[in-house]
Amino acid sequence: MDEDSFRDFVQTRLSRLSRVAYLLTGDHHAAEDLLQNALAKLASRWKQVRKDGNVDAYLRKILYHEHISAWRRVKLERSHADVPEPAPGPDQMEASIRRIVIEQALAKLTPRQRSVIVLRIFEDLSEADTATAMNCSVGTVKSQLHHALGRLRVLAPELDVLAREAKEVFA
């Protein structure tokens, strides 16, 4: 019964979780490892966490910490050249370039900066929920996001969107 409920929980979220893991790591193998390790930790406490009721928040927290731990444990070799980019048509060219630029910029952020971008912007979590996931204060979330966006602007000045984002966040 526990096993079934765990499967149901994961299956309904697998696509989204896969995307989050990929954005956090930027690498298919690392994303798969990250997701597997985080879900294994969740599975090991499934009964208790399920009783507690806030499984998504708990999983998010594990995913974040596992990401930081894995990064510290193993030097991940990220090579975007390993993943062939599908050849874009003329109208897709700009979008593809922008995507590659943002991926390369994300790869140069620290794990915490990358995480705050994924949690706060991609997952659209509130500052408070992001702080809970990262086990830090709201102030730290704000400053991390500020640093992350600032660093992205330096790393990817081609992306005018980043300048606008910064104004939105810190206006």
Binding site: F6, S18, Y22, H28, L35, L39, A40
Partner: peptide
């Protein structure tokens, strides 16, 4: 660009 990483069974076994 992410794939769907279906690690459910491995994760349960790992747990």
């Amino acid at each position: 660009r992410a794939k769907v990483y279906d690690v459910t069974e491995l994760a349960w076994a790992g747990g």
